[in-house]
Amino acid sequence: MTTPPPHIEIDGVPATDPGLLAVLMTGFGHFTAMQVRDGRVKGLGLHLARLDRSTRELFGRELDGGRVRALIAGALGTAGVRDGSVRVYVYPDVRVAVTVAAPAPDGPGAPQRLTTVEYWRPAPHIKHLGGFGQSYHREAAGRAGYDEAVLTSPYGEIAEGAITNIAFWDGTSVVWPSAPCLEGITMALLAPRLGSVRRPVTLAGLSGYRAAFVTNSRSIAPVTSIDEVAFAVDEELMERVYAAHDSVEWDEL
């Protein structure tokens, strides 16, 4: 149990629930992010399984999927919307917070220029809070004129983007790096539909790939370069990827 401090203020205004804020301020927990359209979600079962699995690992308790669905539906109802970018956060004592923001633009994402950084996330299989390292590198990439940072090992093995998964096209197969990473829901939905494979991908081997793309809950976008290595936008590949994602059924909350 998190013991709340006796007094908390935010911008000079006393907090109305110090106990809840103390839980949120621990920085320890996990979350999932999803796009909701007309009260429906793609891969809802995967989101619920992720939340339950991580709750069991971090807190030793299960998280009922019915409760999560009700909380999301309730938050959408309170916000008065049927579409949105929704996040579900789980904190100590299995406190669950749901946020609703404007939906991400529908359709293909803009082409991305990426740069590499030597960094792997701790406990990468969990979509955990406290991602200072990846946020730091992504912000630095943005200031340098890039769209995203690609996380690599000291030996040049690629794992993932700071907030994305990355895949490569070798002319025959869609290849996802096999290094430890967070398996995003969009990646999990696409991989079996694209007949893709997982294997080591290195910086030294990038020139052997014809194309690349990144995925997350907000978009799927082609990659035009990683550092000095340029990639053509393979329109046929991207149409196949978009079609695979479009084929995923929507699940009712």
Rank of each mutant, 00 (worst) to 15 (best):
E239W: 13
D251R: 06
E235C: 12
A102S: 13
V223T: 00
H137V: 11
P222N: 14
G145P: 15
Y136S: 12
D64G: 03
S207L: 12
G45V: 08
I166T: 00
G131C: 05
R69Y: 02
C181S: 14
R218V: 14
G107N: 11
I72D: 00
K127H: 14
R37F: 13
P124N: 09
V150I: 14
D83Y: 06
G43V: 02
Y119D: 09
A123Q: 10
D83W: 03
Y146Q: 09
I10E: 08
A211L: 07
G109R: 12
Y91F: 12
W169I: 02
V214F: 10
G65W: 06
E148Y: 05
T186P: 13
L21W: 09
R67C: 08
S178P: 08
I163E: 13
M187R: 15
D64V: 06
P105L: 11
H7T: 07
H137I: 02
A243I: 01
W120T: 08
A33M: 04
D251F: 10
E139H: 10
L46R: 11
L253T: 00
L58F: 08
G74P: 11
G171F: 14
F168I: 06
T186A: 13
G107V: 09
A140T: 10
D83M: 05
A33D: 07
P154Q: 15
A73I: 04
T164D: 04
Q112A: 14
V117F: 09
G60T: 06
F132E: 04
S85D: 12
W176A: 00
M34T: 09
V174C: 07
T99V: 08
L206G: 05
R143F: 14
G109T: 07
S217C: 15
T55S: 04
V229Y: 01
T78A: 15
E62F: 12
T3A: 13
T164K: 04
A110F: 08
I163S: 01
R95W: 11
K127E: 06
I158K: 05
V174N: 01
A212C: 07
H128I: 03
T116E: 06
P92N: 05
G43I: 01
A22V: 10
L63P: 00
H125P: 00
L114W: 07
S85V: 05
F168G: 00
D64I: 00
P200F: 09
D93S: 12
A33F: 02
V223N: 01
P111Q: 14
P222L: 08
R56V: 03
P105C: 11
A162T: 02
V248F: 10
A244G: 11
